[in-house]
Write a protein that binds this DNA or RNA. Structure first.
Length: 264
DNA sequence: AAGAATTGCAACCGCGGGGAA
DNA sequence: TTTCCCCGCGGTTGCAATTCT
């Protein structure tokens, strides 16, 4: 079976969309829905192929699209899901409402993959670039620092599912979030705005405890002494993840201290 | 200040799945 | 069962913006 190239017909426009074309496509879909994508451009009066219209709508014009930089939580989810699912961008996008597979794919290739590689090789992470444009905002925005939840570096996610899966304490996600205080005292504000450098905090593991030192961090953020925390994995179920998976967080408890895990 | 190099992202391409005829 | 068509997915590309020298 020979398939004709999408835009073989002469006269069909390719390349960047103009605001006028966007307006035509949006108002047509808002009035009539998209129905048959192939027929849509003709009906709407656009010199584009249906595939191009679909892509423009899905990736850019849809009203529920969330624009702007990814939050560190979203990036964590992407990293975690990528580890579980691989390059199944649409499946990952399903876990991030308002984000498209294309956007996630781009973020992975431009930020997260490099970050993980740098993390593995103990290199500094390069300064994030300022986002070029944002349709919902006329001002340029700086990427958020991507140091995520305290000392839980991206490479630590690899141990999420390898952790103590047989532990009995299954708790809810909101409970985990309310337990932020038991993590080591390194949060997003730890890092100066212009750089993302979670590698300046080093973690050394001996049996199930982590020794955390941040002697390379900026002076105002250094601990007075090296502190030791116990690592513990806690799992949770989240209805957002409808494919039956459980997720695991590593939390850190100061040596000598104990906490009670919240009940269901 | 200007040109080169790098980066980020929108858009394109081709393939495969699934459903209708 | 086979053929055709549409849609969605993942990989890749092109180019504008930004940074570097």
């Amino acid at each position: 079976m020979v398939r004709a190239p999408c835009c073989e017909k002469m006269g069909l426009k390719k390349g960047p969309w103009t605001p006028e074309e966007d307006q035509i496509l949006m108002s047509y879909i808002q009035k009539h829905g998209h129905g048959n994508w192939r027929a849509l451009p003709k009906l709407a009066g656009l010199l584009r192929c249906g595939k191009s219209c679909r892509l423009r709508w899905i990736n850019y014009l849809r009203p529920d699209i969330k624009r702007g930089n990814f939050s560190s939580e979203e990036e964590e989810i992407i990293i975690k899901m990528h580890e579980l699912l691989g390059n199944r961008w649409s499946a990952i996008a399903a876990k991030l409402p308002g984000r498209t597979d294309n956007e996630i794919k781009n973020v992975w290739h431009t930020h997260l993959k490099k970050r993980l590689m740098n993390s593995d090789t103990n290199k500094r992470v390069s300064k994030p670039r300022i986002k070029r444009s944002d349709s919902n905002s006329s001002t340029l925005t700086q990427s958020e620092p991507t140091s995520s939840s305290g000392c839980t570096t991206s490479s630590d996610f690899s141990s999420f599912s390898e952790g103590t899966k047989n532990m009995d304490n299954m708790i809810k996600r909101e409970d985990i979030e309310s337990m932020e205080t038991v993590k080591p005292p390194i949060d997003e504000s730890f890092w100066p705005q212009e750089t993302v450098d979670y590698e300046s905090s080093t973690m050394m593991q001996s049996s199930n405890s982590w020794t955390i030192s941040n002697e390379l961090a900026p002076p105002q953020y250094q601990f007075n002494s090296v502190e030791t925390f116990q690592q513990q994995s806690v799992g949770y179920n989240d209805s957002k993840f409808d494919d039956g998976m459980d997720f695991w967080y590593d939390i850190f408890i100061k040596s000598g201290e104990s906490i009670e895990l919240p009940e269901f």
